[in-house]
Design a binder for these strands. Structure first.
Lengths: 224, 224
DNA sequence: GTAAAATTAGACGCCATTGTCTAAAACGTC
DNA sequence: GACGTTTTAGACAATGGCGTCTAATTTTAC
């Protein structure tokens, strides 16, 4: 606790948090066993109780940790918006692909949605925090982006917030089942889903006569 | 067990199933206590073990029961499709409203989604069954509907399955948070969400020049 | 009214888990 | 190499839930 030992503790702490996240996510709070977490973390049970007073403390620490990572990821995501409207369809498609890959379908994203749904009633602030920092920030940023693009004349939108929510919904339309239960979709699935979403979005909100009949360029390698 | 007594058992069974559904949904399988279920059902614990061999048996019975109700509701829902394209926007809006009210935001719908996400890994057939009988049947029926409407020239769609998934996604776009955690949205919210969804859907897939500029008619009373 | 079936309350054994405690071992630092 | 800290393995009591059993009571069928 003197500061010198924090690096040593850090490895254990992260190991515990990682294992606990997995067990909590699979078994829920009630079903998760401290012994199982300790075993998965290759750590003695006492060490867990040493770092976190009780099961509840560990749980909120896990949620906080995952939420911090997810927030950072979303933040870095939102700083890569397309700003010029030259290749709007391709840019939006690439954005949807990365959003789905790095925020929706990834480990942390699924963990948070599952946890929020499982334990949201028991921890209301967990739900609120997730909603504000996750979907809230995303739709706010998208709304601002669409306002800029509409101002430039690249999109025709009456309600930016509605358009933002619909954009997100369309982006997930083809992945609902994969997101709910499966693992990470393949690159092909991700691209197809993004293309379908953006195409429909632009048919609804794009400037008429701006449809791009260009052949689909190489997008499959966009990963980060 | 002789058949004569089934009516008497029926009341207890339903009471148990109802209480168990609530407790399982709130606490998850591991966190649910038989005693709590018995208390909520105003039934002795032994009666539960009399009807259902063990906790697991009760759980699958609960899921089966809710799923049967939800399937029946969806089936009755799918038999009320708009068939003529005269008032397509209003008809689709009314359909989305009823779908959201009776299948998505209602008690059974939220129960199933929550249970599937909580216990889907432990009971893979639960997830599969829900997927096929719920979202699967819905998108299949919508796809067929859109094919008919496209054949009539009322819609212009290249991929009916994609359009069906997008239609469902748009229908939920404004309700994601409510659906995930809150209760039943108000009539106003339901109508606004449905209007937004159908308007965007028709902007993307509607016959050009068929936009209805008519003032919104009375739809708020459509309930069942 | 009577007999059979169902329900109840409560006690019980069993097991898993939580959280504490202790003594030994490993680790890092000087 | 010595010392303080951290970690470990295991024992431990306490708790709570599951599933069983029994004896009494209620409901149902005829």
């Amino acid at each position: 606790m003197t500061g010198h030992t924090q690096r040593g503790q850090c490895a254990k702490r992260m190991s515990i948090l990682e294992a606990a996240a997995e067990v909590f996510c699979n078994q829920g709070f009630a079903g998760a066993s401290i012994d199982e977490i300790a075993a998965k973390a290759c750590v003695s049970r006492q060490t867990i109780y040493n770092h976190y007073r009780e099961k509840e403390t560990l749980f909120v620490a896990v949620v906080e940790d995952v939420m911090n990572r997810a927030n950072a990821m979303l933040f870095s995501m939102l700083s890569t918006f397309p700003d010029n409207a030259d290749n709007l369809e391709d840019d939006l498609t690439a954005f949807v692909m990365r959003l789905n890959r790095n925020c929706i379908c990834n480990h942390d994203g699924k963990f948070l949605r599952k946890l929020v749904q499982m334990e949201g009633e028991r921890y209301p602030h967990l739900f609120e925090s997730w909603r504000q920092h996750g979907p809230g920030k995303l739709t706010t940023a998208l709304s601002a982006l669409f306002a800029r693009l509409a101002h430039k004349g690249a999109l025709i939108i009456d309600d930016f917030d509605v358009a933002a929510r619909q954009f997100v919904a369309l982006g997930n339309a083809d992945l609902q089942m994969t997101v709910l239960f499966g693992g990470m979709p393949s690159d092909g699935e991700l691209e197809k889903a993004a293309r379908n979403a953006v195409r429909t979005f632009l048919k609804a909100y794009g400037r008429p006569g701006a449809e791009q009949a260009s052949p689909p360029p190489q997008l499959a390698t966009v990963s980060g």
